[in-house]
């Protein structure tokens, strides 16, 4: 019943590094059952860069599930990028879920880009100017959708895929002053309410890989500058020592 989840984020592909990532994905089917991409797939968020991402990650022998990141929104072409990825057979989550059969096990993946606002006790609230309310509301609405998506998932293992972080743990190394722009505790709260086996995110290039939510869900920051390896592999269902 084990599932091996490969994950990486913040590959920030562009013309100057076209084709350089693909060779590192060779043999991924021997190491993992699925590959998750945690956003910031491009640098400028242009359709041209979206095409480079699609070429780099298409036709792998494992399913690929992606979310976008803030860089993928920079040129207002996010819908086109999503369409390009989907045309290449890459699944893109937009605050929804999907189920991937992995051998005998069923893996549920929930997520989207997520958003920020800060962490409990030191965060923005829906108060005051409309701009401030809209900022915080965006995160809250995303968290609500993830909560609902998790609730409806009847699977063996559940993974949440996000660009922004749900906790401060994995931000260590980033300046504390910018934590409110790196994630939100609302994402953790939504996931803790329903439970999950793993929460994968990117965005915090200077952070660290490992953390945990207040409810005990393991958090992994898979931003490429943090991992410094092609992707991380997490084996779920490890209570059976034979299984992983």
């Amino acid at each position: 019943m084990k599932v091996r989840v490969a994950a990486v984020g913040d590959v920030h592909l562009g013309e100057d590094i076209r084709g350089r990532y693909r060779p590192r994905l060779e043999g991924i089917e021997q190491r993992a059952d699925v590959l998750l991409l945690a956003g910031d797939l491009t640098r400028h968020g242009t359709p041209e860069e979206g095409r480079i991402v699609a070429e780099e990650f298409r036709d792998l022998r494992v399913p690929v599930v992606a979310v976008l990141g803030n860089h993928d929104y920079q040129s207002d072409a996010e819908d086109e990028i999503i369409a390009l990825l989907r045309d290449a057979g890459i699944h893109v989550l937009e605050d929804d879920s999907m189920v991937i059969p992995c051998g005998e096990a069923r893996l549920g993946v929930v997520g989207g880009k997520g958003f920020c606002g800060g962490f409990a006790g030191k965060c923005a609230s829906e108060f005051g100017e409309p701009e401030m309310k809209a900022f915080v509301r965006h995160t809250r609405e995303i968290a609500d959708l993830w909560h609902k998506a998790l609730k409806g998932l009847d699977v063996d293992h559940r993974v949440v895929l996000s660009h922004y972080s749900p906790v401060k743990d994995t931000l260590a190394g980033e300046p504390p002053e910018i934590y409110p722009f790196l994630g939100s505790y609302l994402l953790a709260e939504a996931v803790d309410a329903e439970g999950a086996d793993l929460f994968v995110h990117g965005h915090a290039h200077a952070g660290v890989e490992k953390g945990v939510t207040p409810g005990g869900v393991r958090v992994r920051n898979v931003a490429l500058p943090v991992l410094r390896r092609a992707y991380a592999v997490y084996c779920l269902g490890g209570e059976d020592p034979e299984s992983c």
Partner: peptide, 13 residues
């Protein structure tokens, strides 16, 4: 410049 190494060991959760 980020140096990207081989995937390496998996982690059991």
């Amino acid at each position: 410049v980020v140096e990207v190494r081989e995937p390496g060991e998996e982690e059991t959760l």
